[in-house]
């Protein structure tokens, strides 16, 4: 949609003005994320650019906030907690979610609408309400687990947070996997069955490889949901389950060190990585579907 050669002057002005507006919006979208990065190398304990930094003086920059992140016990423990909780929650939501999505995609499912609404609801209900409900439920469950089964308090804390996060990740798995299954050619499973494969073999050898991109991107969504979640863990977890976002949240509220910005930069790196993976998967899925359809 280039500018036609016969465009009048007002049209030209509008054409460029529109582009400038769009550019400004893109700047609005991306600047906050970019600003964080140089600030995380700040040599001072400020959230702002120091004169040295603006002069590009090497003395104004340092890695001390990164050093702090990697040596500080609090940060390391919260990172460890996040790395324990998010993957396990993801595994639970992906395995249960994929199974359910396969079930839901079959042709005659009674109460499909209702079931779908229930499974999607964790995404719709505002987090604060989910957190409130879970707060009451999991404190009762936790007390019961500790008192009746005599489980360790810390362990119970992890179980509570992991289950809560698994529920939050489920809608994303359901949505991505059902979307992939829409383009799935059913005659493939029938052909496999015809050649003597039992349903389990059919699922793992025929269906699974084809819907794998959807499953993985659903899993990534579930992972990022848990890895980035703070409201529910704030209500359900106890100090022993402090995750990275929780630590950042307390840091931001009490305004402590710019270590937060160092963590933020690292997290932006992770999100770039995730974005790339999801994009590659989407392309692969489209390619696979193209083959299936032809």
């Amino acid at each position: 949609m280039g500018l036609p050669p016969y465009a009048t002057t007002p049209q030209r002005i509008w054409y460029y003005a529109f582009r400038v507006i769009c550019a400004l919006i893109f700047i609005f979208l991306i600047t906050p994320i970019l600003v964080v990065m140089p600030l995380s190398f700040n040599a001072e304990n400020f959230f702002t650019f120091t004169p040295e930094m603006l002069r590009l003086d090497p003395d104004g920059y340092s890695l001390k906030h990164y050093q702090d992140f990697f040596t500080n016990n609090e940060w390391q423990r919260s990172l460890k907690n996040s790395l324990i909780i998010a993957p396990i929650a993801t595994i639970i939501s992906v395995s249960l979610g994929t199974l359910a999505a396969v079930g839901l995609s079959q042709s005659h499912v009674p109460f499909k609408g209702t079931i779908m609404a229930i499974l999607i609801s964790p995404m719709i209900v505002p987090l604060i309400i989910s957190a409130t409900g879970m707060f009451f439920f999991y404190s009762a469950l936790g007390n019961w687990l500790e008192a009746t089964l005599g489980l360790d308090r810390d362990f119970v804390g992890y179980v509570k947070v992991i289950l809560a996060h698994a529920v939050l990740g489920i809608p994303f798995v359901i949505i991505t996997v059902t979307a992939t299954l829409v383009g799935f050619d059913r005659s493939l499973t029938r052909a496999a069955a015809n050649m003597g494969a039992d349903p389990v073999t059919t699922f793992f050898r025929v269906q699974m490889p084809l819907i794998l991109p959807g499953v993985i991107s659903g899993g990534l969504f579930a992972f990022i949901t848990s890895f980035d979640e703070v409201v529910v863990v704030l209500f359900v977890g106890s100090a022993g389950q402090k995750t990275l976002p929780w630590q950042m949240f307390t840091g931001l509220r009490e305004q402590i060190s710019p270590t937060i910005l160092a963590v933020a930069t690292l997290l932006v790196g992770i999100s770039i990585l995730l974005l790339t993976v999801v994009e590659l998967l989407r392309r692969r899925s489209e390619r696979l579907r193209g083959i299936v359809e032809s």
Binding site: V36, D228, V230, V268
Partner: peptide
């Protein structure tokens, strides 16, 4: 990229 970036990162930004 903003969509995939952690909510807390954007808020702190």
């Amino acid at each position: 990229l903003p969509f995939w970036t952690s909510l807390l990162v954007r808020t702190s930004a």
